[in-house]
Write a protein that binds this DNA or RNA. Structure first.
Lengths: 141, 141
DNA sequence: TATTGTTATACTCTATAACTATA
DNA sequence: TATAGTTATAGAGTATAACAATA
């Protein structure tokens, strides 16, 4: 039997758990022809009509430079429209097709989420989510 | 204020927390001239002298195809030697330089780990690690 | 000066297919 | 047939630098 010295490390467990869920998510949404990153952007716009690319990037930790092709791709697919905010920035809004896809995406994600830790209580799950938030947002409560 | 609909999702929090710790780890070990993946392989060999590439891959979820250049790189750097097990497989063993680097790596990782969730109790931390293990190893207790 | 959007580019990690040699 | 190691290749995500237009 092989001894895995990484097994007790928070970082290792985070890496394996995240990789597992991200791979499952990618597979779950491939029928929607979205990558994980594109899907996260679509959902954020759905909940925040008029948000700009730079704002999305700051919230989701996506570089401005990497947001450009994502926004262009979603626009080309007819999922969102751009509305000039000022001369240099433009708010993003889902159109009808984008809203429909976002709704389908949300239910797909809910099904995906429910596959993991199905036996845990809701309060334990929320505690877990709160602890993970503190890993990358150490300043907040 | 922007509403992030992903914030309550286990998958999203795992992704952000893992990305944060993996970026910090990569930075922490860059002085050792190791990538995260190479570092994990080095530690596994240190704790399991004679382990084969395929075994390492199965334990750490690294494709056999991706193990080959990692093992070759560690060999070229004079950190490990290969010992023929049977005609097709070979056990990996650290030599003196590899053991010294593995020891330095272990203490670097310990310092890195202690930076995250410093205010949590040991038992809470172990509970968190155990929950994460259940995310990707759903069959085990 | 700082910010927005953009293009180009490179690197890491991961995934798949195919091949050989051996069991 | 199955497994070990290897090579080649491609995709996703991420990172940096630079630029024009605007604030």
């Amino acid at each position: 039997m092989v001894d895995n010295p990484l097994d007790a490390l928070l970082g290792y467990q985070l890496h394996r758990a995240a990789a597992t869920m991200m791979a499952d998510l990618a597979h779950s949404i491939e029928g929607l022809a979205l990558t994980r990153t594109e899907a996260s952007v679509l959902l954020l716009i759905a909940h925040n009509p008029g948000v700009t690319q730079s704002e999305i990037g700051r919230i989701l930790a996506i570089q401005r430079a990497n947001m450009a092709p994502i926004a262009a791709m979603l626009t080309d697919r007819g999922l969102l429209k751009r509305k000039r905010a000022d001369g240099r920035s433009q708010g993003l809004l889902l159109n009808r097709a984008g809203m429909a896809l976002a709704a389908e995406l949300a239910s797909t994600i809910a099904a995906h989420e429910s596959k993991f830790l199905p036996d845990i209580s809701l309060s334990d799950r929320q505690m877990l989510v709160g602890l993970l938030r503190r890993v990358w947002m150490p300043e907040l409560p």
